[in-house]
Every structure is written in structure tokens, then in C-alpha cells.
Design a protein around this nucleic acid. Structure first.
Length: 270
DNA sequence: CGATTTCCCTGGCCGC
DNA sequence: TGCGGCCAGGGAAATC
């Protein structure tokens, strides 16, 4: 379940390793979600960027292009050098690089996606195309958060997961940010104070996630095959039935949009 | 057009 | 030990 901190961790690891290399060959699993991988062959890798949970690898070829990778639920990107090849029991794509290494994409459940598009041409990926601001961007203000949340009748957690209000928040960090800011996941309107607290909480839980190398609960591994450490510091997600560390009440699990949601019924009132 | 629902996937876990 | 059933859930397509 890679969210922004996990994708950013991978981006930071891959960028210096991929920059300057040339893709000399490729292989892709026979599914439309991955077959675009072969269109990157022949391109020069100019750098690895990130938008929300999407990795954007800049390609220089006849025209500027982007190799877009979304890790879905169980996607893993690793660099294989001849000596140590990463676990790839569910290989979905491989890009052979001119120094003899290979970028390998493994994805057990095939919720991931690969696309090669013209630079900045994102209309074929609707979620990316309509992505909200980066959480650390100046544009992500409490006023913007409040106006977008209050403009829709959907509950706040659903809107956070939609990626349209802010980019990169998934189920884990949504529960953490809502808990930290005392906002009920089922709230439909935010006060100015709540919006300010939630904006700050989103930033702080994501920053902690990045600083801790991401959250590994099941499948997530970084680009070196390592586990994250942030799972040791989760206050709310996955802790239903346990006491809230802030007030002592028992954390409760509900289902919103078919996604499990943990919150504190005392700290997070509607 | 926005909101809501369904579907895609398979390893791990639970109960019998 | 074996096996059916269920759960995890991001994003896109289908439907309301």
C-alpha cells in the first residue's frame, strides 16, 4: 500500500541510480496495464519525479516523454544488478539499462499501472490528470482544503482518498491525519480551525512517513528491498480495539467506501 | 456531470 | 493437512 511517503522514498533512491542511463531493452507482462513499458526502449533517463503516488520518470527520446509508474497495492520497483537480483515472483515489467543493471517492476495483485506518454500529457490517467495540490506545496492552504471539502457532500475521508483535494494520501495516512487533527472521518463540513488542523496533520504525518522510510505492514519494500519503519509510529491506523493513546477510549473500526477506517469516538467527534 | 457502485487481483488468514 | 470463504484496497470503468 504505497502512499506518498513510500513512493517518495523509492523516488529518492532511484533518481541518482537511473539518471543518465539509457533503456536498451524491456519486457512487459501481457496485460494492457503494463504493456506500455516497451515504449520506453531507446530513451535516455533524465530524472525521477513524483506527483502524489505516481512516479514520473523523465525520458529523453525523439520527443520529451514520461514513463509513469503507479505501484497500486503491491507494486515494487527495484534495481537488479547482476550480483543481487530482487525477488520478482510476480514480474510485470523489466527495463534493461545500458550499464548492465535492470529496473524491475514486481506486482503480486496487478493493481499497479505503467504508462508512457508525452511529457505532461496525463489525460489517459484521469486521477493523475485531476490530482489535487502536493501536500507540501504552498498552494495547499487550509482555505483551499476547507473550500474543497465543503463544496462536496461526500465525507471528508472519502474526499482525501479521492486524490482530488490533495495528492498522495491513502488509507493509512488519512486515518492518522484525521486522528491527529481530531476530525471525524465521516464529517461532511470543516470549520476553519478544523481545516487548519487537518492541513497541518496531513503534512506532519506524511513528513514523518518520509523521514521513517515509509510504512511496511505487508508488501511495501523500498527500491533496495528494505522495509520502512513508520509502522512503529502509527497512532490510529490498524489499532481498532486498542485504547486511544490520547484519551484512553477504545478505537473503533468502521467501513467507509469499502475501506476500513479506524478512529477515536471520543477525540474525533462529528 | 457528479455521485455511487462494481470490478480488478491473489496471498494470507481463519474456521471447520 | 486441506480447503472454502473472506479480507486487504487504489484507481478506473460502469452505472445511477
Amino acid at each position: 500500500m504505497p502512499e506518498l511517503p513510500e513512493v517518495e522514498t523509492i523516488r529518492r533512491q532511484l533518481d541518482p541510480l537511473l539518471r543518465g542511463q539509457v533503456i536498451v531493452g524491456s519486457w512487459a507482462f501481457g496485460s494492457a496495464k503494463f504493456t506500455d513499458a516497451r515504449f520506453a526502449v531507446g530513451a535516455h533517463l533524465a530524472g525521477v519525479r513524483r506527483r502524489g503516488k505516481y512516479l514520473l520518470i523523465d525520458l529523453e527520446a525523439d520527443a520529451p516523454m514520461e514513463l509513469i509508474v503507479h505501484l497500486g497495492m503491491t507494486g515494487r520497483l527495484e534495481l537488479a544488478d547482476g550480483s543481487s537480483s530482487p525477488a520478482s515472483s510476480h514480474l510485470r515489467a523489466r527495463w534493461d539499462l545500458d550499464d548492465g543493471t535492470a529496473l524491475v517492476f514486481d506486482d503480486v495483485r496487478r493493481f499497479g499501472r505503467i504508462a508512457v506518454v508525452g511529457r505532461g500529457q496525463h489525460t489517459s490517467l484521469p486521477t493523475l490528470d485531476a490530482l489535487g495540490p502536493e501536500p507540501f506545496d504552498d498552494a495547499f492552504t487550509p482555505e483551499l482544503l476547507r473550500s474543497r471539502i465543503n463544496a462536496s457532500s461526500r465525507v471528508v475521508k472519502t474526499q482525501l482518498l479521492s486524490q482530488r483535494v490533495v495528492a498522495g494520501v491513502g488509507n493509512i495516512y488519512a486515518d492518522e491525519a484525521l486522528w491527529r487533527s481530531h476530525v471525524h472521518p465521516g464529517a461532511r463540513r470543516l470549520t476553519r480551525r478544523q481545516a487548519a488542523d487537518l492541513r497541518d496533520a496531513i503534512r506532519s504525518v506524511l513528513a514523518a512517513g518520509i523521514a521513517n522510510g515509509g510504512t511496511t505492514l505487508r508488501n511495501y519494500r523500498d527500491a533496495e528491498g528494505g522495509s520502512g519503519r513508520n509502522q512503529r509510529y502509527l497512532d490510529c491506523y490498524g489499532r481498532s480495539g486498542e485504547p486511544c493513546i490520547r484519551c484512553g477510549d477504545t478505537l473503533r473500526r468502521i467501513v467507509l467506501d469499502a475501506r476500513s477506517t479506524t478512529y477515536c469516538p471520543t477525540c474525533q467527534r462529528r
